[in-house]
C-alpha cells in the first residue's frame, strides 16, 4: 500500500509534469512511437491478411510463420538489431515492435474474411461482382469488426512493449522504468507502470468504440438475440487463436 501512495505522490509532484523528461513529453513520445509502429505494421500486415483471407492462398505458410513470430522475445530482437544495423536510434526497437504487431493484424484480417458467410459471397458473385468488388464491398465491411480487433490487440501489445526499448537511449514511458531501476526508485517505476497501464486501457477502450462503430448495421442487427431470424450467420471458424484478450 505504501509503495502505491509513494507512486501517487510521485505522480502528483508538479516537477514530474514539466520539461523534456516530464510525463506529458514521455506520453507524447510513447504515443508517437506506438502510432508509427501500428501504421507500418498495418501497411504490411493488412494486405497480407486480406490476400490470405480472400484467396485462401498462402495460409499454410503465413499462419505458422506469424505464430512463430509471436514467440520472439522483443528485448532480444532490440539488442540484436541494435548491434546489426548499428545504432542507438529508434530503428532497432521500431523494427522489433513492428514484428510484434504483425501477427495479430494479419490474423484479424484473414480471420475476418474467413468469418464472412460463403453464401453472401456467392450471392455477390452471382449478381456479377468482380473479385475486387467482393473484397471491398462485401468481405471487408463484414469483416471490419475482426480486422479492427486485430489492430486493437496489436495496439495493446505495442503500447505495453515499447517500454523495453528504453534499453537504448530512446524516449517514451520505458524511460521511467529503466532510469528508476538502478537507483531503486520504485515509486517512479510503479508510477511509470501505472501510466502505461492507463494509456493501454484508454487506447483499448478507444478501439472498442471504433470496433462497435465499424460493425455494419446489418451484422449488428443479426447478432441481437431477439431478432433470431435466418439473417444470423453462424461464425464459420473458431477464433480463439486470436490474441487471448480477443478470445
Amino acid at each position: 500500500m505504501n509503495s502505491y501512495s509513494q507512486a501517487f505522490a510521485w505522480l502528483a509532484a508538479p516537477g514530474h509534469w514539466a520539461g523534456p523528461s516530464g510525463i506529458p513529453q514521455r506520453i507524447l513520445e510513447h504515443l508517437g512511437y506506438t502510432g508509427l509502429t501500428l501504421l507500418i505494421a498495418i501497411a504490411i500486415a493488412l494486405p497480407v491478411g486480406l490476400y490470405i483471407g480472400h484467396t485462401g492462398r498462402g495460409r499454410d505458410v503465413i499462419v505458422p510463420l506469424t505464430g512463430a513470430m509471436r514467440a520472439l522475445p522483443t528485448l532480444g530482437i532490440v539488442i540484436l538489431l541494435a548491434l546489426w544495423i548499428g545504432g542507438i536510434g529508434i530503428q532497432a526497437p521500431l523494427i522489433a515492435l513492428v514484428v510484434l504487431a504483425l501477427p495479430p493484424v494479419i490474423a484479424g484480417a484473414y480471420a475476418g474474411l474467413e468469418s464472412v458467410d460463403r453464401s453472401v459471397i456467392d450471392a455477390a458473385r452471382s449478381i456479377g461482382f468482380t473479385g475486387w468488388q467482393v473484397l471491398w464491398q462485401v468481405e471487408v465491411p463484414l469483416a471490419l469488426p475482426l480486422i479492427v480487433g486485430g489492430i486493437r490487440s496489436a495496439c495493446l501489445q505495442v503500447i505495453a512493449t515499447w517500454t523495453v526499448a528504453a534499453y537504448l537511449p530512446v524516449g517514451g514511458l520505458g524511460r521511467f522504468l529503466y532510469d528508476a531501476l538502478p537507483n531503486q526508485d520504485y515509486a517512479q517505476m510503479l508510477a511509470g507502470s501505472l501510466i502505461v497501464i492507463v494509456l493501454a486501457l484508454l487506447a483499448d477502450g478507444l478501439f472498442a468504440l471504433v470496433q462497435r462503430l465499424a460493425t455494419p448495421r446489418g451484422v449488428a442487427a443479426g447478432r441481437t438475440p431477439d431478432v433470431g431470424t435466418a439473417t444470423r450467420s453462424p461464425t464459420r471458424k473458431d477464433q480463439t487463436w486470436l490474441a487471448p484478450e480477443e478470445a
Binding site: I79, A82, I88, A166, Y167, Y178
Partner: peptide, 9 residues
C-alpha cells in the same frame, strides 16, 4: 543511456 553495463551495444 544504454542499459547493458558497458556491453556490446
Amino acid at each position: 543511456p544504454i542499459a547493458d553495463s558497458g556491453g556490446p551495444n
